[in-house]
Design a protein around this nucleic acid. Sequence first.
DNA 1: GGCTAATCCAAGCAACTGCTCGGATTGCTC
DNA 2: GAGCAATCCGAGCAGTTGCTTGGATTAGCC
Lengths: 208, 208
Amino acid sequence: MRSSRKTPDLAPKKRPVQDRSRETFEALVTACTGLLPRRGYASTTTNHIAARAGVNVASLYEYFPGKDAIVAQVAERLVQRVLARLEEGLPRVMSARRADAVRRWIELIHDTVSREKELVSVFLHQVPYTNQIPAIEAIGERLLRFSQQVRERAGGFVRADFSEASMHLVINLVSSTILQSVLDPPRDVSRRDLLDELVRWVEERIRA
Amino acid sequence: MRSSRKTPDLAPKKRPVQDRSRETFEALVTACTGLLPRRGYASTTTNHIAARAGVNVASLYEYFPGKDAIVAQVAERLVQRVLARLEEGLPRVMSARRADAVRRWIELIHDTVSREKELVSVFLHQVPYTNQIPAIEAIGERLLRFSQQVRERAGGFVRADFSEASMHLVINLVSSTILQSVLDPPRDVSRRDLLDELVRWVEERIRA
DNA sequence: GGCTAATCCAAGCAACTGCTCGGATTGCTC
DNA sequence: GAGCAATCCGAGCAGTTGCTTGGATTAGCC
């Protein structure tokens, strides 16, 4: 545990070129992905990761400068998966009746996050340098672009005077509500009710 | 670093009874409070805390069963401070014109969180057991009670059919927006604009 | 097949972690 | 001030951490 306050090295050291090493690389990332949710960030050590991957620790340090880098790699894969699933589900959203576009969009995000909730929780509440990971930094903008597609689909009935601040609020509301309902669901309200209300809010706010 | 997945002991081991030991206790908590923001959770060790408090490590373990417990104690103090400042600022909110109540309330919360942003960030993004700390678990309800006071002050023009889900959304929106504007302010929108828009949203949503 | 570079691994080190022990010192009570 | 509990501390242990070294093994290429 040397990190203290230093900015960690997050980039992989070197890319594997042969097939054998690519497998090792993948095995390491996969092992780390599996370990993080069940052991937590602090207790997921490089030795554990290597052991679980059936590989020697030294091989890990062949490809990653340290623990931070492999964790960052796991985050990048996570972002990739999430974005891919959103992309995959987008047609279903776009093909919906206009009135249902927002609801479908929110449900899609919810389901996608839900599948990865354990990992998301770790990165959100344990990894100290989560928002320094490039892929994480970029995800906001990526999501914005997605939302604009939905918005265009919703077409005519989106208000023209949609300020930057207003946009931020919508995104805040959607993401925080979905995260809460997935990671720490309130006892006194069903998820159904919560999401229903969320859809209503967003629609009212977005409509011209 | 033994914790892995075990539930940590968060209660202090024993309360100091003499003056001298009470000072030691305070010095330890203070030292930890100062250390957490600048070293981060993982690198804040019991040895560091004791050293900075000018006290031997053994004394730390006299009063706390472990690192988790002293960190939890810091969290409790933090919650106390925040609630106290809200309480302190409440009169100014309540004495405002009705139309300004919401704005004043939100500004008060923002300023209060802002003063403790470093600590808040640590507990939010690094400490793995933050929401298991009793004081943290209770803070939601405490805030709700505060808000209800403001709501009553706002009096007649609060809608009657204010569903549980709707309440959750308001709280989500306010807290997540304030946290974002304090911990990770967006580049393309000024804080002023963001908070202004937030006030507008909440008012529109709350009004009958 | 032979050569070079890529890849792997057994072993283990130095640093640091949370934590404990025995005894010394201090304050309280009478 | 005697006696006793509360409090403190020097010293250090056992376990774990992230990481390295030197040499063995393998794959790719002529």
